[in-house]
């Protein structure tokens, strides 16, 4: 298996606060193609910060991150935007769908940014929405969907661009048990079918049960890293 993400001695220190916070502390990790990994740990241990750094949403204070062998810590804002567009899918805790677009349009949105043809966009969006069990909700806007349905659209959107990996920050935090179960099954299935790497940050034991690798963080450092 090839390494998709490689992190070496990564540090992130927030200096805006009265006392500097060392959110990620000399952390080194790597992820391989097709992993289904969960990053766990108590609140404030650095899970979200780590995902933000891997996703190019934030800049590290120190250290290196290689995506497919390319160091992204030196990238400009524009390069990071392109990196996210072509390589990374995001699933947020609060779904974060675009409210004026339907489920289908939300999924197509990323592909439109990639300048894919209309036919290609439509076919891929429909394929993904069927895969996440929303074949009958394609033309519905987010405001008329349940939280679970919105999160499934978000997963479909994250996969639309055929990214190398998906970063999901507490994706089940706002979902009930039934929706969580459904979402995890879908993500597991897509992980198998599409071969996309999934990396979650979570507190949810149901997510941990599904994960094939669990990385535990504490004070911004890797406490344990277990492959199950």
């Amino acid at each position: 298996m090839s390494k998709v993400i490689e992190i070496n001695k990564l540090n992130k220190i927030y200096t805006e606060t009265a006392v500097p916070v060392h959110a990620v502390n000399d952390l080194s990790l790597s992820f391989e193609q097709g992993e289904f990994a969960a990053i766990v740990g108590p609140s404030g241990c650095g899970k979200t910060t780590l995902l933000n750094l891997i996703g190019g949403l934030d800049k590290p204070t120190d250290g290196k991150i290689w995506i497919d062998g390319t160091d992204i810590t030196t990238f400009s804002i524009g390069q990071l935007t392109d990196l996210r567009l072509w390589n990374i899918g995001f699933v947020f805790q609060a779904y974060n769908l675009i409210p004026v677009l339907t489920a289908r349009e939300n999924v197509e949105f990323i592909m439109e940014l990639q300048h894919k043809s209309k036919a290609e966009r439509r076919a891929r969006a429909e394929e993904l929405l069927v895969a996440v069990g929303l074949a009958d909700r394609m033309d519905v806007r987010p405001s008329r969907m349940s939280g679970g349905q919105q999160q499934r659209v978000a997963v479909a959107r994250a996969l639309a661009s055929k990214p190398k990996f998906i970063l999901a920050d507490e994706p089940t935090a706002n979902l009930d048990s039934s929706s969580t179960e459904t979402l995890l099954n879908i993500m597991e299935e897509l992980n198998g079918k599409e071969g996309t790497t999934f990396i979650f940050s979570t507190h949810d034991s149901r997510v941990m049960k599904k994960a094939r690798r669990i990385i535990t963080l504490e004070d911004g450092k890797v406490l344990t890293d277990n492959i199950i």
Binding site: G78, I98, I110, L113
Partner: peptide, 16 residues
């Protein structure tokens, strides 16, 4: 602003 943040996160350039 939150929506712009999402758009930027998923790969939309600020110029767009």
């Amino acid at each position: 602003l939150r929506e712009f943040g999402v758009m930027a996160a998923v790969g939309m350039h600020r110029s767009r």
